[in-house]
């Protein structure tokens, strides 16, 4: 329990720093921004209570906000995402089935369920963040393009992260 907690904490801090230093400055073709830090939120154990998920989500969002000078934008989007996490998981998981490992991954909840979970939540997050951001400028086609491109890029990067971690775990075994 403690080991996985420490692992998650380190992962969260590293992701927030990476988002602030590297990913925030990437903007492919002027539309796709990788939003990778939500990986930390998606990887929280299923067994964690909603209150904790909300608190951690808000804290992660606020720290990313501080790095990118976007007052409350990421905090709001992360809080909304934290609230959506459980309903989305319930939607895809077969009823009454408990995952072997509380941390959602392709090994613990099945590849297709995990992929659906990842894509849905990333898309939701991109919708939240770009809709909040575009309160002042409203250009619907550009907005949709940004949402889709960013979601695709983020999912691709997060799947890459997944491969990185799962391979390491296999080696250790």
């Amino acid at each position: 329990m403690t080991k996985s907690t420490i692992q998650l904490t380190v992962l969260t801090i590293v992701l927030i720093l990476a988002q602030g230093i590297v990913f925030n400055h990437i903007c492919l073709f002027g539309v796709a921004v990788p939003l990778v830090f939500i990986y930390a939120l998606l990887k929280l154990p299923v067994t964690l209570t909603v209150n904790w998920v909300l608190t951690i989500g808000f804290a992660i969002g606020l720290s990313v906000d501080i790095f990118s000078d976007t007052y409350g934008m990421n905090a709001l989007a992360c809080t909304l995402l934290a609230m959506c996490r459980r309903p989305v998981l319930r939607l895809y998981m077969p009823r009454g089935e408990e995952p072997a490992d509380p941390v959602p991954s392709s090994a613990s909840i099945g590849r297709s369920v995990y992929l659906k979970y990842l894509v849905t939540l990333t898309l939701l997050f991109c919708i939240f963040i770009f809709v909040i951001e575009s309160f002042t400028f409203f250009n619907i086609w550009r907005l949709i393009l940004r949402i889709i491109c960013s979601a695709v890029l983020s999912v691709a990067l997060m799947l890459g992260l997944d491969c990185l971690f799962s391979r390491r775990r296999e080696k250790r075994l």
Binding site: L54, F58, G61, I66, Y71, G72, A75, T79, L80
Partner: peptide, 29 residues
């Protein structure tokens, strides 16, 4: 808790005057 966090982030988000922002919540912190 959800409502509290949403309200907190909305207060941050909609305090539109950038001159009132606190230095610790910016990248100059």
């Amino acid at each position: 808790l959800f409502a509290v966090y949403v309200i907190a982030s909305c207060i941050l988000l909609f305090s539109t005057n950038p001159f009132q922002h606190h230095v610790y919540l910016t990248s100059a912190g």
